[in-house]
Design a protein around this nucleic acid. Structure first.
Lengths: 208, 208
DNA sequence: TACTGTATTAACAATACTGTTAAACATAAA
DNA sequence: TTTATGTTTAACAGTATTGTTAATACAGTA
């Protein structure tokens, strides 16, 4: 044999990633993964033993990616407004790489309590750290009188809401690959990116 | 026989609604529906012929509910800020009745293009009407100098983002029924409700 | 009472899906 | 060339799941 040397495993992982993200755990059949990967379906069990094993590999990697990135994007020291803008945009641009990611992760967390706990334990430390820093940064700005009092948790949640929902809507509005060639697709994204930054920043400022 | 006279059909629909909303189409098994409804599983095929038929009934009703309500909540004539506040709150309160609704509908739309088209055709007229009215209301306020120029679509999208995402997060944070007895659950909702109104309104206002 | 249409049940059929196994095959090292 | 090791295949087993059917019950009605 061509001694695919890890090739088969990679093919399976790639096909599995694509299908799981698209159809979720229950919607994805192992034989479909095999067919997409171009390998005999027994290979899935040879390399990963069970569907659940294979799924976990994908899920944990994806969840870490999603959450890790969120933390990263807002983890720097703030010269407040510019960094906030950069953080939102960086986060937005990351999501535009893999539009299905947030909905996939959220769905599977909701449908399986174990996964929820797994995720929570993973991000708790980083999450608390970032909240602490952000709280401090906000407090400083409030002192200066540039923004109104805001909880760091609320701010993060607002950003996540706007950014994530943009990509959920994107999938509804432009579901097929052809749709995504359209000009409207680009326009929609640009508009939302700008809107989200403006709303968050304008929303923080104190009115006259 | 007790001749349940339409009772069985109702029992099936109720059980199906609960399970489909919780587990989605693929996660729900017809025998589970039958068991939950307390009827023989052949009844499902007797009344609805196929799983897909039964699902469509539920889905279409739910989608109409979700979208219809959104339209309704923002469909009145605006004395701007108060009505905007009321609209957001009404929408939020509606979602709090059935927290799983938006994610359920979004998921099934994304996973099935036919459903997407069905939905689009259903809401297009109402959607266009509400956009037109809102555009007019916004233009008037902009003239008065009370708010900054904003597209109606962006505004609606912002509201939907914040409100819907609150309930997606809610399901992640408080997944079980016991969780929802907690005090934190109520607090979270109150906080988000207030936050969303404030962010939208403050975000519209012009800053010095 | 017998007839008709609807409702219900249990048993069955057909298929889909996950997981297992034994044997074949390829390759590198001895 | 032989052997050891890891990889691949086809065939199969077991179960889950959807869907079908024939027999039966019952209510209303002619």
């Amino acid at each position: 044999m061509e001694q695919k040397a890890g090739n088969t495993e990679r093919l399976i992982l790639e096909a599995a990633e694509k299908l799981f993200m698209e159809k979720g755990y229950n919607g994805t059949k192992t034989m479909d993964i095999a067919k997409n990967a171009g390998v005999n379906h027994a290979m899935i069990h040879y390399y990963f033993r069970t569907k659940e094993n294979l799924f976990s590999r994908i899920f944990e990697q994806k969840a870490a990616q999603l959450l890790g990135f969120f933390v990263e994007a807002f983890n720097e020291d703030y010269p407040f407004f510019e960094k906030l803008k950069t953080g939102i945009e960086t986060h937005f641009d990351f999501l535009s790489q893999t539009p299905e990611l947030p909905l996939f992760v959220l769905n599977e967390i909701i449908k399986d309590k174990n996964r929820r706990n797994y995720i929570f334990n993973k991000i708790r430390p980083a999450g608390e750290e970032i909240l602490k820093r952000m709280t401090k940064a906000i407090a400083e700005e409030v002192c200066k009188g540039t923004i109104r009092p805001t909880k760091a948790g609320d701010l993060l949640m607002n950003i996540a809401s706007l950014n994530v929902f943009a990509f959920v809507a994107l999938q509804v509005l432009f579901s097929s690959d052809e749709d995504r060639q359209q000009e409207g697709y680009i326009k929609f994204l640009e508009e939302r990116r700008k809107n989200n930054v403006e709303l968050i920043i304008n929303g923080l400022k104190i009115k006259n």
